[in-house]
Computed example of a mutant assay.
Amino acid sequence: MTDKPNVLRETDDEARKLAHTLLRGARSGSLAAIEPESGGFPFVSRVLVGMDVDGVPLILISKLSTHTKALLADTRASLLTGEPGKGDPLAHPRLTVQCEAEAVARDSEAHARIRERFVRRHPKSKLYVDFPDFGFFRLNPLRASLNGGFGRAYVLTAEDLVIESAATVSLAAMEAGAIAHMNADHAEAVKFYAERLCNAPEGDWKVVGIDAAGLDLAYGDQLKRLEFPAPMRDSSELRPLLRELYG
């Protein structure tokens, strides 16, 4: 009896970069949770997706919704990201992340940071983000399945997905100021990052997120993720790195 062929490829840096772009550059995704009232059937819903400074995906959902009740009863969840383009939708890359949902308390130290990052990415969420029935969850990755197209399947670990850098805390503290400075004083560089480095269409692109591993760029309802060649180790690397990318 012959062994079944292994359809998985070895996870390499190219696969990790694609996974990072699919997850960190997602505006929305499909969230699957376990609905207790149905006897454990999966319940899938579309959600807006944000990202915390450490690369952990964020969602903002109402306590009145089925998926919030499901996550509070059972923290296991899966998040699917990756938008289909023209032609066969299965020919386009997508990422399924198995996660453990962690509710973010409004009085926690992390809430203000998470709220600010999420609203910058999704400005319309400002209309309801402070409603008493809405709350954030961090979806802490456990493992992921990446389908990069036909014959390109990979398994990734939590370590492959999160951002591990000594610069994370200091970058979070300076993020808002750095974003305001880039958008006000370096608009041409921001435009270059989006249109030349991310192959985005022409537009009034803005920086909406900075972390140790890359930039989040937005124009209207479009979002692009620019991954740095390697995560920064210190926040002092930000200015020369952005200058080098523009050069």
Rank of each mutant, 00 (worst) to 15 (best):
P89E: 14
G85D: 14
R115Q: 13
D107K: 10
L156P: 07
S236M: 07
I210M: 14
S65G: 05
E37H: 03
A187K: 09
K69A: 12
R113L: 14
S45W: 02
R121W: 01
D107F: 05
H67L: 13
D160W: 12
V207P: 13
L171T: 05
R115Y: 03
K4H: 06
E102Y: 04
V97P: 03
V47E: 01
P231S: 10
A176M: 06
C198A: 11
S28F: 15
L245Y: 09
G87Q: 09
R152N: 15
C99W: 01
F131K: 02
L161R: 00
H186Q: 15
T68S: 04
H181I: 11
L238M: 05
R106D: 07
R46N: 13
L142G: 15
G148V: 06
A172M: 02
N147I: 06
E14P: 04
P123C: 11
F134R: 05
N199V: 13
R113S: 15
H67V: 07
H111N: 04
S78C: 08
L64H: 15
R46T: 06
P201Y: 14
P141G: 04
K69M: 14
A105C: 04
R24C: 01
I61A: 06
A173E: 12
T81H: 03
P84R: 06
K126P: 10
E102P: 07
L223R: 08
L197E: 01
D12M: 10
K63I: 11
P42S: 06
E116Q: 13
L127M: 10
P57W: 01
P93S: 13
D160K: 00
A218N: 04
T168N: 10
E244T: 07
L171R: 04
D234M: 02
T81R: 02
